[in-house]
Design a binder for these strands. Structure first.
Lengths: 205, 205, 205, 205
DNA sequence: AATGAATGAGCATTCATTCAT
DNA sequence: TATGAATGAATGCTCATTCAT
């Protein structure tokens, strides 16, 4: 039922690349539509591609979902770790943290309806781990490569703490998306999340 | 698309009540099974009841899911608000908060696999709001009936803060369940959540 | 599939009669409603009677339909033949014919929606002969007991002619009902049908 | 409830056309069979086609019925109007009328059992208007394009008259089919209908 | 007699996937 | 490579009818 390989064949030619892109874009659009119409045939049709071609590049329906999820969420993870691993001297810890949170919010912000549908679709197809994995990886990354405190010491963060902190933040963001909350764009929302994030670092005291 | 009424007819005879219970129990078991076998026919069969009987009490498939969700999660919400609204003199704020968190964790704790599957099924069937609603109601409840601070003043909690706080806690719990994390039973987990919860009350400073 | 006996048991007690009446009335009402909700359970419920009781008096669903059809259409046939067989001297043939047509129209006129639904239901349940039979019987009746012409001779009407004449008239009425035509109440409509009926008698020239 | 579009997709390949034909032919045969077995699965099976293929070309069960009805009755309407609109000089009015009636009868004549079942099926599925529509259109056509009288004047036919005339004729034909009457093939039957039809034209006197 | 809970065969429809062209 | 016709297992749901109470 689960597809381990995302792509059936690596598309080499320009034409093939265009097809894959069209398929993913079509998938995103249909997801955005919101009606329960996310079928392989519908995706192919919207992509202007035959259903046969679709199956040339994706072994099954889930593969499309996974590919789309990776595309949509990859920025997110890297943006956060990038922000956190910045080592420019002038950059205060507080500021770096805020930037990371901001990157995270922005990552989740765009194409909100698509993301909501994507999350639902992933879960509906038994691929919820596909959602938690990147979060966990980011967390591991942060833990092993944590930003130094002003004192220069590396904070010792317990696994539980890390778990709760990451899930709390991502869970809040996910809830905001799923409930189509208008908070998500506001500065107060960012403030609250930053405050939440401090929990992570303050726990080492 | 959505089923507003959970039950089609109120069961009067003992026989009927037994049927409804059997159906819900069968639903829980099948969900627990984890295969994508949650079909009305499968539920009826496992309940030892005909498909017709099933539909005598539930207007459609979703209604079963909703009824099960309410049964499984109702304790949760009320347990929390009960804990929070305790006004025994000797009971410190900290203690009350901890009790509320504990109630929440315990509500989510039992039958973990069933709950995970239930959550997935609710989302897969477009009923994700059924998950957020009780949380939101609890939040409203807390907001309008907040525990007094030691000083005797009622803390003014902004909506954003309340939103973030509730979603952070529930999001963490949900993640713990979905990832089948072993943290969920540990005291440290509870500690971390309590610390998180303080964020809500401390925001009025 | 077809029910030859309309009633399972002849209701003797007042209570039983009331039940039967209630059931037929409920059936008529539901038919009138027009939504495809004509189910035995729905009829029983509307009649304020249990489904078991319904089956005490009607062997199957079709029996209800047939009983209702006979009740609704019996007047029609007899009214026509009554009109046609009047032998009062002062009554001109033309006048008698008009009265017969009028009786027919009036028979079809009331409870138009119910009749339409009844016709549809009868056909849908393979009971279309239940509709044609009374017409045919009336025709036989007329043929063997035709009104005398002014000259005192009995007109010789060929079977084909009788067939066409009766079907033309009833067919027109039925169409008017099925199409919910507003013509059905107008005097011109009556005039036209009378003219049509003359075909029958004039054919013997 | 009603299917406005008869076809879901227009068949392009020869294979597809063959499928559609097979489905319609199978539908006709099953209808002819007379058992209440007109199910989509039965049609597909008899057509030697998978149920999926059936639904590729027909949006729902009713669409099959409608398509079949149009195929079976289309000739009818056009044949009549063709006959009526003939303007060859040598052709008398009487003759043209007779030809029209003959076309109508022939249209209804063939495959009598299929037609009976088709009519029943249309009505049973709430598509009775599908039966009256072509008649009404033909009537409108005749009204606006009536054959000239010998005198050269265009007869003014009142709507009621047209209604009664068309319904009388079609109603008679329908009755003949539904009752499986043997009259339908006889010359006398045609004569009677022609006489009936004269009613329409003679009404302008 | 009346009740109403239970039954289950049966049906319309969907959609991921294949494969001949 | 691309196409799209074909597949068919699978599913949600209805409703006439029975029978224990």
């Amino acid at each position: 039922m689960k597809s381990t390989d995302t792509y059936r064949k690596i598309p080499r030619q320009a034409r093939a690349l265009a097809s894959v892109d069209a398929i993913l874009e079509a998938a995103a659009q249909i997801l955005q539509g919101g009606d329960g119409r996310f079928t392989t045939n519908a995706v192919a049709e919207r992509a202007g591609v035959s259903i046969g071609t679709l199956y040339q590049y994706f072994p099954d329906k889930n593969a499309i979902l996974i590919a789309l999820a990776r595309q949509e969420l990859s920025l997110t993870g890297s943006a956060v770790t990038d922000s956190l691993s910045q080592r420019e001297t002038g950059c205060e810890l507080d500021e770096r943290l805020r930037l990371a949170i901001r990157a995270l919010i922005e990552g989740f912000h765009g194409r909100q309806r698509t993301r909501k549908a994507l999350i639902e679709a992933l879960i509906a197809n038994g691929l919820s781990e596909e959602l938690t994995r990147p979060v966990d990886e980011a967390m591991q990354d942060i833990l092993s490569n944590a930003p130094r405190l002003p004192s220069g010491t590396i904070p010792k963060v317990r696994p539980v703490t890390a778990f709760v902190a990451t899930r709390a933040i991502v869970g809040t963001l996910r809830a905001a998306i799923m409930e189509e909350s208008s908070f998500i764009g506001s500065p107060e929302f960012e403030d609250e999340l930053v405050r939440l994030a401090h929990t992570l670092l303050d726990s080492s005291h």
